[in-house]
Write a protein that binds this DNA or RNA. Structure first.
Length: 452
RNA sequence: GCCCCUGUCGUCUAGCCCGGACUAGGACAUCGCCCUUUCAAGGCGGCAACACGGGUUCAAAUCCCGUCGGGGGCGCCA
């Protein structure tokens, strides 16, 4: 699909004139990070929406690295930002452009304005003179008409004394040079926009369309801080969040896909996205909703696709799973897939499968294991299980229930102590499935295990 | 201080542009019930909002004005 501005041409398929038109009207957006920090949620969301728009319209999504402040820029940050984008599923077209390599272009444009009397020297810097007494007006994609009196705008630095360009000037020169058609960015840039429009006018250029998305707030309504989820995208990965979930939440924080589509994938988002529906209201980041979305995406994901991620979590937690085959891990993941909100939680949930000295809940131990009666029953259960032909969940359950019946017990009074003995926890996956996976030997040892 | 953006359940939102079908719908969270060997998952249900004050109108969540609240900006940072 093409940009809405594209003239109606029924023969858009082939002719050379149309090819030029297509090129000219193709949506071109960009993400322009400054490599002076990590990729945080706010910038990730900005990148995401630009990308969604490009992919939805079949346009281009370009990358521009705003590294004009060389002392603060660091390639480590850049790498982390690019890694973060890739992880989220955001790809870009062509090679990134680096502002640090284009200083001569900015200076040339500034000298042009100087020569035209639209700018003046101030020491070694070049300043743009703003004509007072009028208003700059533009139609914001998300906010509608926005107008500002030029009296509110003071003369703007184009080139600093050290020869580097100011942010606003480099931004305009590059956006024009890259043929950017739409700029989606944070609300914090609203007041930059009139200044930039003035530059476009002075340079004799047509400004692109601007859209300013409200900033994401922390749960307390204040700016997203480290304390409240305002950490890098990388942190969320380490915490065990799926990129699908993070992207999903970021999308919901700026655009509403409809009641039927709250849980969606990037592909669905690309298909459904409509730039006209961007929210104009600032939204608070909601960790609960993120966790819920994460759980939903984990449940929907194929177990095989979870395997590598789970191994990463186990490895990061120092769990030794070298003795376990993928088949075993796959079954284990199946057992806990609907029980974790984050991948990291898997590690704690499944401790009893990886070590015999797993931790034991005190409450549960007192309630179920410290009783003489329970121990005796567990011993009996162990004997039954030992005699089993096949050690399957089905057979185990049968043995367990018939034992309970013979003893005149409720199955639960056998099951709860058994779960405690086998896993050290009062909650978890189905007892019989756990036992089958654990294997007869471990189960018998633990059931008979004198409660350490 | 000045300028700009913004205000529907605790949170994300639908509805607002094109007033009436809104006893304001959905989702997360929370509470209860069902299912059940536990915990989840799933199903069912409950609680819960049009910031406030004026207009306009037969009629306002929807249009207008003001107040208050929230956020952002006012760098030779980006």
């Amino acid at each position: 699909m093409l940009s809405p501005e594209l003239p109606n041409c029924p023969e858009l398929t082939g002719c050379a004139g149309c090819a030029i038109l297509v090129e000219k009207f193709m949506v071109t957006v960009r993400f322009a990070p400054s490599p002076t920090g990590y990729l945080h949620l706010g910038s990730a969301r900005t990148a995401l929406f630009n990308w969604l728009y490009a992919r939805h319209t079949g346009g281009r999504f370009l990358l521009r690295i705003e590294d004009t402040d060389r002392s603060r820029s660091d390639s480590r940050f850049l790498e982390e930002i690019l890694r973060g984008l890739r992880w989220l599923g955001i790809d870009w077209d062509g090679e990134p452009i680096y502002q640090s390599q284009r200083f001569s272009l900015y200076r040339e444009k500034a000298r042009m304005l100087l020569a035209q009397g639209k700018a003046y020297m101030d020491g070694r810097a070049i300043l743009f003179s703003v004509n007072k007494g009028r208003t700059v007006e533009y139609e914001d994609i998300v906010h509608g008409k926005i107008s500002v009196a030029t009296d509110e705008i003071k003369d703007q630095v184009l080139v600093k004394s050290d020869g580097s360009p100011s942010y606003n000037f480099a931004c305009v020169v590059d956006d024009a040079d890259m043929a950017i058609t739409h700029i989606l960015r944070g609300d914090d840039h609203i007041s930059n926009t009139p200044k930039q429009i003035l530059f476009y006018e002075a340079l004799g250029l047509e400004p692109p369309r601007f859209g300013h998305m409200p900033l994401i707030l922390g749960p307390d309504g204040a700016k997203l801080s480290k304390r409240h989820g305002g950490v890098s995208v990388e942190e969320y990965r380490k915490e065990g969040f799926l990129p699908e979930a993070l992207v999903n939440h970021l999308i919901l924080l700026g655009w509403y896909p409809g009641e039927e589509h709250e849980i969606l994938t990037l592909e669905e988002a690309v298909r459904l996205f409509d730039i006209a529906d961007l929210n104009a209201v600032q939204a608070k980041f909601d960790m609960q909703k993120l966790r819920w979305l994460n759980a939903e995406h984990i449940m929907r994901k194929k177990t095989e696709d979870l395997l590598t991620l789970i191994k990463e979590q186990l490895g990061a937690a120092g769990v030794d799973f070298s003795g376990m085959g993928d088949d075993y891990l796959l079954k284990l993941i199946d057992l806990y897939k609907v029980r974790m909100k984050t991948l990291r939680e898997f590690v704690g949930l499944t401790e009893c499968f990886f070590r015999d000295d797993f931790s034991v809940e005190e409450e549960g131990r007192k309630k179920y294991l410290d009783k003489q009666e329970s121990r005796k029953n567990l011993g009996l259960l162990a004997d039954r299980l030992e005699a089993l032909q096949e050690f399957t969940a089905r057979a185990i359950e049968e043995a367990c229930r018939s034992l309970a019946e013979e003893k005149g017990l409720k199955p639960a009074s056998l099951i709860h102590p058994a779960r405690m003995a086998v896993s050290g926890r009062t909650s978890g996956a189905g007892l019989f499935e756990m036992m089958e996976l654990l294997g007869r030997e471990k189960v018998l040892t633990r059931l008979r295990g004198a409660w350490r």
